[in-house]
Design a protein around this nucleic acid. Structure first.
Lengths: 124, 124
DNA sequence: CGGGATCCTCAAAGATACTG
DNA sequence: CAGTATCTTTGAGGATCCCG
């Protein structure tokens, strides 16, 4: 993977768009900012996980949400989906290299969250 | 306010799911996961910024959203608000120590976002 | 300048039921 | 087991006007 510098054209486009480059933070949050997105990726960090296991790990999310986020992450290349032709079928989800590249960020988030006073985990 | 009441059944189910401790990722995202939250904090990292300057830095966000997030972050102790009695008044926002503690996470997010192919910054 | 007050929209999320 | 298919809700976010 080559280091990618922003082309002059890209910079110009951004400037044209209004000088406000949507900062990297915004871009990143658009991808990882879903309510369950981070949790899903995080629970895949130790290797492939099957759908229902994942669903159980993330207690608050409906299967529908798990599926939707998973599909999006797959389309974006962060997650790999592997169908095992057992009976009944089992499906394993795992992180791609790209997906793994987001783990550093998630680890930082986890660390930060651990320092939070209890009030935050309850309500705010 | 018509069918506002959740059925007992539904509440029970929710409670049941609540037994799964929401992982740290979820907690963190609830606080920092707003569409503009990260951007706001990030733009405060180099020192106090006045409201309208902040508003200008974050091109896509309405003043209402800036205000709302700022108020929330203030209530949560991440941001400090200082009113200068000039005329007309000017208001400076800055990060508290607690707010600064989130910068590591934001920096990781920024780094990760920089590695993204262009398609992500345009649309996805 | 730094907001507040209103009204509105729409995508994300949730509930529920069903299926190959 | 691993999802679909619908329907409903909600609330974050946006648009607009106003104010001291």
């Amino acid at each position: 993977m080559s280091a990618r510098l922003k082309s002059d054209e890209a910079q110009k486009k951004q400037a044209d768009r209004g000088c406000f480059q949507p900062c990297s933070i915004e871009t990143g949050m658009r991808i990882l900012g879903g309510k369950w997105t981070g949790s899903i990726l995080w629970h895949l960090k130790d290797g492939p996980v099957r759908f229902n296991d994942l669903s159980r790990m993330i207690g608050g999310a409906s299967k529908k949400m798990i599926t939707e986020r998973l599909r999006q992450l797959e389309a974006q290349g962060l997650v790999d989906r592997k169908v095992m032709q057992t009976s009944p079928v089992s499906v394993e989800y795992s992180l791609t290299d790209f997906g793994c590249s987001a783990l550093g960020f998630l680890e930082k988030l986890r660390q930060w969250s651990e320092t939070l006073p209890d009030q935050f985990s309850v309500a705010d």
